[in-house]
């Protein structure tokens, strides 16, 4: 049974033929009793009836009249074909739920259903492999950010350029957490080459970090700060609340994470001459 009556089912039932009917294979009687009607179930005529099967559809005394709305639609479509128009919308017809719009949204894949920062941070929150707990914690963090008042930004600790204004952040907690992490993320790390500086000292060389590495470092710093904090209350919401408080502190410039970032950057700038050191040629 076709799910809906459209032009194709109508065409199937109409059985337009270019050749004489007698030359083709003899069709079953069920085919002819089916018309454009709402009643799409085939009715077999009685075997012993002497009446000949109705061969012509045009003499459709048995088919339902073109009164129903679906019949009207099908007839309209036929007329449009007659005028040389294409009446069929390919995205709707023939599909129960329609075709998806292309390009597919970035989060429609199961494996990438969450924002990339949120996904990464959730894995960093995870302890003992308990991902579901980490996800719940993350949801609580996002809800905390949604209910906390808009952050008062500190001009001396500027957020990432292009960050949304502070009043927009609470209702968009995903970008809130993203802005916080990306703003304190260090650009470099300082790598020590053991014994290359002479006298057993290590030669410290600044190295650039990738986006994921930067976020990871920043969030580890945030987690370090969180672990030193005391809970105000008790219960399972306490850890996520502490993390969320630290994220608010980062955006407001109160957090010690900013100092760690400055420290790394300072030492990287101080040691940038070591990049040209002969001893590390070929080791980077």
């Amino acid at each position: 049974m076709p799910p809906r009556l459209n032009i194709w089912s109508a065409c199937r039932a109409l059985s337009l033929r270019t050749r004489a009917l007698a030359q083709g294979p003899r069709p079953g009687p069920a085919m002819f009793t089916r018309g454009l009607a709402d009643n799409t179930t085939s009715q077999l005529p009685e075997r012993n009836s002497s009446a000949p099967p109705p061969f012509a559809v045009s003499s459709n005394s048995q088919t339902a009249g073109p009164t129903s709305q679906e019949n009207e639609t099908a007839l309209d479509q036929l007329r449009m074909i007659e005028y040389g128009l294409n009446p069929l919308d390919a995205s709707v017809e023939g599909h129960k739920y329609g075709l998806p719009e292309l390009p597919l949204p970035s989060q429609s894949n199961t494996k990438h259903r969450y924002d990339s920062v949120v996904e990464q941070v959730t894995r960093l929150l995870m302890r003992d492999g308990k991902l579901a707990k980490a996800q719940r914690d993350m949801a609580i963090i996002l809800n905390y950010l949604r209910t906390s008042p808009p952050p008062r930004l500190d001009p001396s600790k500027p957020l990432l350029p292009g960050a949304p204004p502070s009043s927009h952040l609470p209702l968009d907690p995903v970008s809130y957490i993203g802005v916080a992490i990306d703003s304190v993320a260090p650009l470099i790390k300082v790598r020590g080459f053991k014994g290359l500086a002479g006298g057993g000292k290590s030669l410290e060389v600044p190295m650039p970090l990738g986006a994921r590495q930067r976020r990871r470092t920043a969030f580890q710093w945030i987690l370090d700060a969180v672990n030193k904090k005391h809970s105000k209350g008790s219960g399972r919401t306490m850890f996520p609340h502490r993390v969320a408080e630290e994220i608010v502190a980062v955006v407001e410039g109160r957090s010690g994470v900013w100092d760690r970032r400055n420290q790394v950057h300072k030492s990287g700038t101080g040691n940038r001459a070591n990049l040209n050191d002969m001893k590390i040629r070929g080791k980077l």
Binding site: L171, H230, K232, S234
Partner: peptide, 24 residues
């Protein structure tokens, strides 16, 4: 730690606190 530890009942009060409004 120089932080004052929460007083008796304070942690429970924080856990049981009911907020009925969100200004955001």
């Amino acid at each position: 730690s120089r932080v004052r530890p929460p007083g008796p009942g304070e942690r429970k009060a924080y856990r049981k606190r009911i907020t009925l409004s969100n200004d955001n």
